[in-house]
Design a protein around this nucleic acid. Structure first.
Lengths: 335, 335
DNA sequence: CGGCTAAATCGAACCGGTTCGATTTAATCA
DNA sequence: TGATTAAATCGAACCGGTTCGATTTAGCCG
């Protein structure tokens, strides 16, 4: 592999001039520039990104840290970020924490070690130690999806309270009163906000929530399935189930099917967040979806903005909260 | 951030001794080792991975390159690889080419620039230029999923011919004769093999394939949908559709539903490869699935083996081909 | 044409490690 | 106790760039 010194030798200039020509061509004379250009082409020089990063103290990589890259929600965001980053000569490296906080932290540490230019992070940690860790990082970071109290960074996400409220209102309008709610982990902002939206809307309508109708689905398939089963075996069953995310809602659908309940004839179902093949799932689930492409775009622009504008003018962290959209299906019936 | 020189100074030894103590403690005396240990703890030293990679010419990163990280098939493999890699102190960076060959190449180049220890690659390229490029890389590479003729590397995948043949035989056994096949891109090994399995099995059974019953679904949603529509508007319709992968098959299901065909009453459907929420899709599609966890495990072990055993004994590339598994659903009826 | 300034170029130090031949120290044995 | 050898440690070069103060060159003016 050709190095910058090979180029310098061939072009008969100093190494520093070659470096300068590469980073700031305007400051090098025309004929020198031309000599260097030819020399670069002749030896096939490509700058070593590792050496550059070491010397500069910054790389051109952007770290993307999520709990599950397989989730299409994150997939869309990743794609948007990646396209935007590539346009700006940055490179996205994706890491997946599998939802484990300690692994997430290890990955962030690793990315920091790589001197990444910036981080797009969907944080799952919430203890003080983790918050201090994030705060200590001197790198542009845009958090998304999960708003964690105590992290003073840009945040991009959806109005989760509204999402929960919208679906609850919809079910109330259809005449449902015995509405069950499958929640997510209590330390997750999305989970608690969606639940708040549900609870407040029920209260506002003067409908009391049966405590047995609120079950924890952990946003996972197994816990969601179990939670749904607990709902379905009660003597007085709910007439509608509201899943706080796609995973628990579909787990509920599976449980319903297995026990022989029909949806929506026997029980209505609604969920927050889309899923890849929603159009071929019977019934089509009524849902509230996030504008993933818009979210991805905002994350990308905000992060690149932070990266390219050094901390000169210390812009305070900002929240970007988008309104989710109601997408009717045929999984909710009027009663 | 503390450097190795800080440690050396505090421990009152030379920099090279500290480095040696870190990489090969056995070659350093007990008391020196202890001094160094304490110094490291005192200054909070952590080796800079960039500097290490630059000096060593190799990093501890493994590149994972696929066309779509969102595909659960790749997701499972990624997870297996990641777990195994972390156990061996390596770090997986995931990149997604979005199925674009030029982007895939750019990403591989970038990963090579990062001096990755090894690559797990599901190649999409196939022209000679690309093959030469891959051949020129002096890094352990394990290819998977797509077997590309001309790439002399370890390969891990499933028996796709068998997968196509199994489902075809199943449909034949149920009495189907007018079986349609939605193919994938002709340059993809998985697509052609699956088709061969279908065609051979039909021929062996003495059943002629209606040329109008073989349509190209490109393994994508839009093309798959279009292909399925073409099948469904024919005056003499197929009694069964075999999708060469999950995407085209589900697109076909969607098309059938939209036109009012019932599955399996009107038309049977079968597919190769699982999909995340197959259990809640009605009907449950009869399919042949790959053992993704096993594939991931083999890829991981093979790659780490290549990484840790330098090319001393130049083991020839090896193919690992697993047998896929038949998973009955209720999307195929006897006629 | 000398003097002054801006532009162009250079040299050396630096980023933070690794590596390896050279040197010092310690252990072994005659 | 001195010679021999192995073990421990060191110093300097190196990986491949960047950076910045110093030096050289060029351009302009009086």
């Amino acid at each position: 592999m050709a190095t910058i010194r090979d180029v310098a030798k061939l072009a008969d200039v100093s190494v520093s001039t070659v470096s300068l020509a590469l980073s700031n061509p305007a400051r090098v004379s025309q004929k020198t520039l031309e000599k260097i250009r030819q020399a670069i082409a002749a030896v096939g020089f490509v700058a070593d990104p590792l050496a550059q990063s070491l010397a500069r103290g910054r790389s051109r990589m952007i770290g993307f840290v999520v709990g599950n890259v397989g989730n299409p929600f994150f997939g869309d965001i990743r794609r948007e970020l990646e396209n935007y980053a590539l346009d700006h000569e940055h490179f996205v490296v994706v890491t997946d924490s599998s939802g484990k906080t300690d692994r997430e932290r290890a990955m962030v540490e690793h990315l920091i070690g790589l001197k990444t230019a910036g981080l797009a992070l969907s944080p799952s940690g919430h203890d003080q130690d983790y918050l201090d860790f994030i705060a200590s990082l001197n790198v542009p970071i845009v958090c998304f999806d999960q708003k964690v109290a105590g992290i003073e960074r840009d945040f991009v996400g959806s109005d989760n309270y509204l999402a929960g409220a919208m679906l609850t209102e919809h079910l109330l309008q259809l005449g449902h009163r015995r509405i069950a709610f499958i929640t997510g982990p209590s330390h997750m902002h999305t989970a608690t906000e969606r639940y708040r939206g549900f609870a407040d809307t029920m209260a506002n309508a003067g409908v009391e929530v049966n405590p047995n109708f609120v079950v924890d689905g952990q946003f996972t398939r197994t816990a969601g399935y179990e939670a749904a089963m607990r709902l379905l075996i009660q003597p007085e069953r709910p007439t509608a189930i509201l899943g706080a995310n796609n995973t628990v809602a579909l787990s509920a659908l599976q449980a319903m099917q297995e026990l022989g309940f029909r949806c929506p004839e026997d029980i209505s179902l609604a969920m927050i967040d889309n899923v890849q093949w929603s159009s071929v799932i019977t019934p089509r689930i009524t849902m509230v979806v996030q504008d993933t492409l818009a979210l991805g775009g905002i994350i990308a622009r905000r992060l690149m903005h932070r990266i390219t504008n050094p901390q000169g003018t210390v812009e305070p962290p900002q929240d970007f909260v988008l309104t989710p959209k109601f997408v009717p299906g045929n999984s909710c019936r009027r009663i």
